[in-house]
Simulated assay, not measured.
Amino acid sequence: MATIRIPPVLRPAVGGEREVVAEGADVGAVLTALTEQHPETKAQIFGADGDLNRYVNVYLNDEDVRVLDGLQTAVGASDSLVILPAMAGGAA
């Protein structure tokens, strides 16, 4: 099972946990398992098209999955995923 580090903004949707574990052969399967365990996370992680939400970055062992194989990036049992919502805003 892979470990998923949960950002503060998503922690209420996973019972306040900082980390959760989920099974899957690739990033997409692991994230889908997460959203099945915690349905409130789905809209935050995935867009309507089933791809990663454009405002969410996912890292596998410190590598952005978008520069790897995206949701098809292979995941091992000892791997760690980090979900980072993109930050925006500021004054003009």
Rank of each mutant, 00 (worst) to 15 (best):
residue 1 M to A: 15
residue 1 M to H: 13
residue 4 I to P: 00
residue 7 P to N: 10
residue 7 P to L: 11
residue 9 V to C: 01
residue 10 L to I: 08
residue 11 R to V: 04
residue 11 R to L: 05
residue 11 R to A: 08
residue 15 G to K: 10
residue 16 G to M: 08
residue 19 E to D: 02
residue 20 V to E: 04
residue 21 V to M: 14
residue 21 V to N: 12
residue 22 A to R: 13
residue 23 E to I: 01
residue 24 G to N: 08
residue 25 A to Q: 11
residue 26 D to A: 06
residue 26 D to E: 11
residue 26 D to I: 04
residue 27 V to T: 03
residue 28 G to Q: 04
residue 29 A to D: 09
residue 31 L to G: 06
residue 31 L to E: 07
residue 32 T to N: 12
residue 34 L to G: 00
residue 35 T to Y: 13
residue 36 E to L: 14
residue 38 H to Q: 10
residue 39 P to A: 00
residue 40 E to Y: 05
residue 42 K to Y: 13
residue 44 Q to D: 10
residue 47 G to Y: 07
residue 49 D to E: 08
residue 50 G to I: 02
residue 52 L to I: 06
residue 52 L to E: 10
residue 54 R to S: 14
residue 55 Y to G: 15
residue 55 Y to V: 14
residue 56 V to A: 00
residue 60 L to N: 03
residue 61 N to Y: 11
residue 61 N to D: 14
residue 61 N to Q: 11
residue 62 D to N: 13
residue 62 D to H: 12
residue 64 D to F: 00
residue 66 R to N: 12
residue 66 R to T: 13
residue 67 V to Y: 13
residue 67 V to L: 12
residue 68 L to N: 09
residue 69 D to V: 01
residue 69 D to P: 08
residue 69 D to M: 02
residue 73 T to R: 03
residue 74 A to P: 13
residue 78 S to D: 14
residue 78 S to N: 12
residue 79 D to N: 07
residue 79 D to H: 08
residue 81 L to R: 02
residue 82 V to N: 12
residue 82 V to A: 15
residue 83 I to K: 03
residue 84 L to I: 13
residue 84 L to Y: 03
residue 85 P to Q: 02
residue 86 A to W: 01
residue 88 A to I: 14
residue 90 G to I: 03
residue 90 G to K: 07
residue 91 A to R: 15
residue 92 A to T: 05
